[in-house]
Design a protein around this nucleic acid. Structure first.
Lengths: 233, 233
DNA sequence: CCGGGCAATTAAGTATGACGTTTACATCAC
DNA sequence: GTGATGTAAACGTCATACTTAATTGCCCGG
């Protein structure tokens, strides 16, 4: 078992974070450090360090004489990987997946266009490799193997864009792809059209055709959006 | 003077964060909590809380027996508003501005398209209002007033998209626009074409023409990218 | 009855010192 | 040279006392 959260404060964080993002403590709720210390059977010091982190995520605000108040949802740092993770395992997972897919549909095409200009030969090779891997695993219940290549493919695209902000979204995209596979149609093979598009994107990047890379990737993400509408909340 | 950083740990954070993001402590550098406590003349408790926050930003990693090590740049949480702010005031401000502008050029057109579908009448009114404000202040050294409308305009667009991830980028866009105005051409009036485009975007959103809104916004961001190339690092 | 100011109370913030725990590193035996 | 072992250095945790600031409510004057 992955014992995430290295120290005690980490464990407190991994307990409180999901509770807050799931809405167990609605915005406006006040938490007292003493009570938390009692509840988790740790010292106030540990609680305070966990609170500092939650505060840096804008999940809570700590004020003297009143306590630690849960902040309204709109103020949360929704780009923090841990917040994203917690929300993906929580109640409004559908909403979160939708948000992230929309973000993805905005970012990835532009990233692919940039990748067509900036990708190194190595990255181009990796792209075609993973596209081929997707082709090879696209039939016959090999969804897990397919997913690995799919994730890797998009990770290379984002990295090859040369934009650090894009590159840092790789984990988000991975989460979306993984979530889709594991929640959606575990028994249906991937859409052949999507597989073809990935191959074409790899080719467009390799030949430096930014326009084609962007357009093709837009088709991929549009497909993902359409898929999402099928099981809309 | 804005004494940001409410407690002692906040002040330590506001001192250490910029130092790290500016590269004063290159990746791999080790900081010791004791030394920091001495340097800032505060207790180790305070230092530890600041470190926890830096750790949650992935700026540093704290390991036993070795100390607090600065992590490589690629692992930083570059979406954390404070990290963005620090980097914008630091050495590689140009790089950062560039990254953010690219991100903007990916996100805003899609957001505008969504806004055309989801914007409330109130938001439509605000859009036209600010577009008009931009027109009114686009001539004769009123750059500050113009900037206010510009920022507000884009903030409404991102909020009206209905996507929380987009909405949370409003501050980033504001920072880019502000930075551009204050560093670029303080004495040149805004590009008339850009002003017109904003008016047209407001109109497209009002009439629900998603395609036009997206296309026009893409022109705006393309203009911003082009501007950036003029004073490229 | 209302309003302003003063004081009490409360919960977070800080300081300190002690101890626990992990682990890099050097030393020693084989 | 390799592996086991020991040691010390740094972070991690705890308990406690004290400080600070803000809320609350009381009290008094208008």
């Amino acid at each position: 078992m992955e014992n995430e959260g290295k120290g005690l404060h980490g464990r407190v964080l991994e307990a409180l974070g999901p509770e807050i993002t799931a809405g167990d403590h609605p915005p406006g709720t006040v938490l007292r450090t003493d009570e938390l210390a009692q509840r988790f059977d740790v010292s106030r010091t540990v609680i305070r360090e966990a609170i500092r982190v939650l505060e840096s995520m804008q999940l809570v605000a700590s004020r003297r004489r009143v306590g630690v108040t849960v902040r309204p949802t709109e103020e949360w740092n929704v780009y923090d990987p841990r917040v994203i993770g917690w929300r993906l395992t929580g109640r409004d997972r559908p909403r979160q997946l939708r948000s992230l897919t929309v973000l993805r549909s905005a970012v990835e095409p532009v990233a692919a266009g940039l990748a067509a200009r900036h990708a190194t030969p190595t990255q181009c090779a990796e792209l075609t490799e993973h596209a081929m891997g997707m082709v090879a695993t696209s039939r016959g219940q090999q969804l897990d193997a397919y997913l690995v290549h799919d994730v890797a493919f998009h990770r290379v695209i984002l990295a090859a864009s040369g934009n650090e902000m894009f590159a840092r979204l790789a984990d988000v995209v991975a989460a979306v792809l993984t979530g889709r596979t594991h929640h959606h149609v575990m028994f249906t093979d991937p859409d052949p059209a999507a597989v073809t598009l990935h191959v074409q994107v790899a080719e467009a990047v390799r030949t430096g055709d930014a326009g084609a890379a962007e357009r093709l990737t837009r088709e991929i993400t549009a497909g993902a959006m359409a898929e999402l509408d099928v099981l809309a909340p």
